[in-house]
């Protein structure tokens, strides 16, 4: 019962964007994918979600993804894209209901309202999606994704949240809110894979970290194993120093040290 990507290779024309990357994500954990720009983070998530052609194998809860129908996949995992455009003036609640249509909570009309409340936007239900700010739109899309896999565990099987830079356009309070939601989903038995830019949020919330650079996996493990001076400086190509505040021992990356 896990999400396993094996030896994933992706080519954009002749250029290799991913050169044989493997990843195992476990339910109950937040697995973060980090790395510099162009390292293949979003490409890896794109392969895992079958959004782009890839070589290699992906299995979800023991089933080969390539053999599953779109609606079977939709019942087991929801995907939050990096940017969302909406073509027509749907209302916020209607957007969230689109997630409900495909999930297995279709007969529970209260779920979209609860999902909006979860991201703190219940009072926005009747607004038109296009009126929202970038950050609000991103949270509405998160609510849609949550409504799709509302129960983190169903029929004894974990369900999955696959998030592509879920906090990219959010202020710090909402970054924490969204990461709390992701961690809560994992603690309730679901699985979360998130592409992350912010190393400190990663250190704070991830249970496991995959670090990519130039289309290869440089490191994979617990945050304190991956987020080290040596590994990060090598991957990002600049001097980075990782520190830890005394009480919790959670590592943090101090960019101020880069010029030192």
């Amino acid at each position: 019962m896990s999400l396993i990507a094996e030896d994933i290779r992706v080519f954009y024309g002749k250029r290799a964007a991913l050169r044989g990357v493997s990843l195992t994500a476990l339910p109950g954990e937040v697995t973060a994918i980090v790395g510099p720009n162009g390292s293949g983070k979003s490409t890896l998530l794109g392969a895992i979600t079958a959004s782009l052609p890839y070589q290699g194998a992906v299995s979800l809860n023991g089933q080969d993804v390539s053999a599953m129908k779109p609606w079977q996949l939709a019942a087991q995992r929801a995907v939050l894209p990096q940017a969302s455009h909406l073509a027509f003036p749907f209302k916020v609640i209607e957007v969230v209901r689109l997630g409900l249509q495909s999930g297995t909570a279709g007969d529970r009309p209260e779920v979209p309202v609860q999902a909006l409340a979860r991201v703190g936007l219940a009072h926005y239900a009747d607004r038109t999606f296009q009126e929202l700010s970038g950050g609000e739109a991103q949270r509405v899309m998160l609510a849609r994704v949550l409504a799709q896999v509302w129960a983190p565990v169903e029929n004894g099987q974990p369900r999955w949240l696959l998030l592509d830079e879920p906090v990219s356009s959010l202020d710090i309070a909402h970054q924490l809110q969204v990461m709390d939601i992701a961690r809560g989903f994992a603690r309730a038995g679901g699985g979360v894979i998130a592409v992350m830019h912010d190393l400190n949020l990663t250190a704070l919330y991830a249970d496991r970290v995959a670090l990519l650079a130039t289309g290869k996996r440089m490191a994979f493990g617990r945050p304190h194993e991956v987020l080290t001076d040596e590994i990060l400086s090598d991957a990002y190509g600049c001097a980075l120093r990782v520190s830890a505040p005394p009480p919790a021992g959670i590592p943090f990356v101090l960019p101020h040290a880069a010029s030192a």
């Binding site: 979600t49 079958a50 959004s51 129908k69 779109p70 609606w71 079977q72 996949l73 939709a74 019942a75 929801a78 995907v79 894209p81 969302s84 455009h85 909406l86 073509a87 027509f88 749907f90 957007v95 689109l98 997630g99 249509q101 495909s102 799709q148």
Partner: peptide, 21 residues
Amino acid sequence: GRGLNGLALGEATAAHIGINV
């Protein structure tokens, strides 16, 4: 109807919510 509603979110997302795009 349902498929075109999903497509309003984009082709990739429509597929992710279970539509045979």
